[in-house]
Design a binder for these strands. Structure first.
Length: 157
DNA sequence: GCCAACGTTGGC
DNA sequence: GCCAACGTTGGC
């Protein structure tokens, strides 16, 4: 099966790429996603070895680096923990409702790739991220889109 | 099954 | 801070 490519959104004030790079093993559990379409991607589509763009939303909307999926979909523990802000009583160990993957830091771009820069690149015009009103926090991207954004990120500022 | 109300996301 | 777009909920 061919490796797939993704884009993962996070508010940097909540969890940034620097937070990920600073983890002892540079790995984290991508938990807390509470949208069914995104859940389906996490649970059914993401595979070990897939790559993803790390995207900062809200403050400085931009792709800021890349990560690797190091563990495929598994039940999101935060949904099962009554003490967690992401707790959801509809999810149980026997019938988990929400899922997470584990991701490992790969690289931080030399220069972030702003959303407004992506908007003017014809090769990126099909991205879900660029759709007006798009709020999906986990979206598939093509290898071509992934590569274009990586090149933009590695270009000198 | 419809749809209004509501809460949230996220760019600007 | 504003507000458009969207997903979810719940009354009917």
């Amino acid at each position: 099966m061919a490796r797939k490519y993704w884009l993962l959104k996070s508010e940097p004030g909540c969890y940034s790429i620097d937070d990920l790079a600073g983890e002892p093993d540079q790995t984290t559990c991508w938990s807390g996603v509470r949208n069914f379409q995104a859940r389906n991607f996490l649970r059914d589509e993401m595979a070990l070895g897939d790559m993803a763009l790390f995207y900062h939303s809200v403050t400085e909307p931009s792709a800021v680096g890349t990560v690797r999926i190091v563990r495929a979909g598994h039940p999101d523990e935060t949904a099962l923990d009554p003490g967690d802000s992401h707790f959801d009583p509809r999810s149980t160990p026997a019938k988990p409702l929400w899922f997470a993957v584990d991701v490992r830091f790969v690289r931080k771009f030399a220069t972030p790739v702003p959303l407004r820069a992506m908007r003017v690149v014809p090769a990126l015009s099909g991205m879900e991220l660029l759709r007006k009103g798009s709020r999906l926090s986990v979206t598939p991207v093509t290898k071509a889109e992934f590569d274009v954004i990586c090149r933009m990120g590695e270009a000198e500022g």
